[in-house]
Amino acid sequence: MLPLVGTIYFQSLMALIAVLLIMRVIYLMRQFWLQSLSRQHSIVDQINALLPQTQCGRCGHLGCRPYAKAISLGERINKCPPGGDETITNLSLLLNEHRHSLDPAHGEVLQRAVVVIREDECIGCTKCIQACPVDAILGGPKLMHTVIESECTACDLCIEPCPVDCIDLIQLGEPELLWRAPEAGKTTLIGSNL
């Protein structure tokens, strides 16, 4: 083959490649900029998305979004018993905070559950309806009440107001998976396999 280095062909080829590369880099930078624009959401929204949305008020706030707002103003992230460790981990990752364990003052870790009204004992006082933060209880004065199971967050705010104690909290347990991953090889980090 001919010695091409130093000829005008070689130089123009190199120039062409350089121009293409620069154009590509500019394009990628623009893409990145556009993406970062679309990612701007308020920190309260981001925190709120990580909370379990049970609206149980165990954190001392009226609901999850108020707590999210409080966190954004500097409150501790370990006050959410329904979320448990997973929520604390996610929040600590988002906010780059220390991963404290759950604050026992706010209760223990809660499992998936649902409340059920023993309907023949209900006297129709509507107290639970007023207590429910997500309007998941149906009923009227002097009429039987019932819980819409799919909407119940198991916040158990309705249990205490009930004058006849006819509301039960039923644990649902872990959902069963059909396919389980093999036990072997649950490591990801390089070197953590020792």
Binding site: N48, R65, V134, R180
Partner: peptide, 25 residues
Amino acid sequence: RNSKEQLALSQEVFDTSKGWQARFQ
């Protein structure tokens, strides 16, 4: 299959919590 199932499950949890949030608001 396991991953698909788990993702579908967390999607479900995510969707319900979204519903709760809406109802709460």
